[in-house]
């Protein structure tokens, strides 16, 4: 699978940009949190596309955002 680039995203409408990012993020998130991956991905897609692109390149950034999202989810459902 080719890496997602800024120019690939720039040519798509916002909703489509988020979908493309979600397709890349989901398997990475699923590897960390199989049961919550769909909700975590949905939450992270509220973040700016430029930051999401960075997270795709940086496992540390993605991991810390996933941890944050899980904490928010757990508080939400508590």
């Amino acid at each position: 699978q080719e890496p997602l680039t800024v120019s690939m995203l720039a040519s798509a409408p916002l909703q489509e940009q988020k979908h493309m990012l979600g397709e890349r993020l989901f398997p990475l998130i699923e590897a960390i949190h199989p049961t919550l991956a769909a909700k975590i991905t949905g939450m992270l897609l509220e973040i700016d596309a430029s930051e999401l692109l960075h997270m795709l390149e940086s496992p540390e950034s993605l991991g810390s955002k996933v941890d944050e999202a899980v904490a928010v989810l757990q508080a939400h459902y508590a």
Binding site: F26, A38, G42
Partner: peptide, 22 residues
Amino acid sequence: GSSINWPPEFHPGVPWKGLQNI
């Protein structure tokens, strides 16, 4: 949208509607 349905779930292969489907 209702907080009960938050957050929206992303499923591969399904077009992303984001917050619209809440």
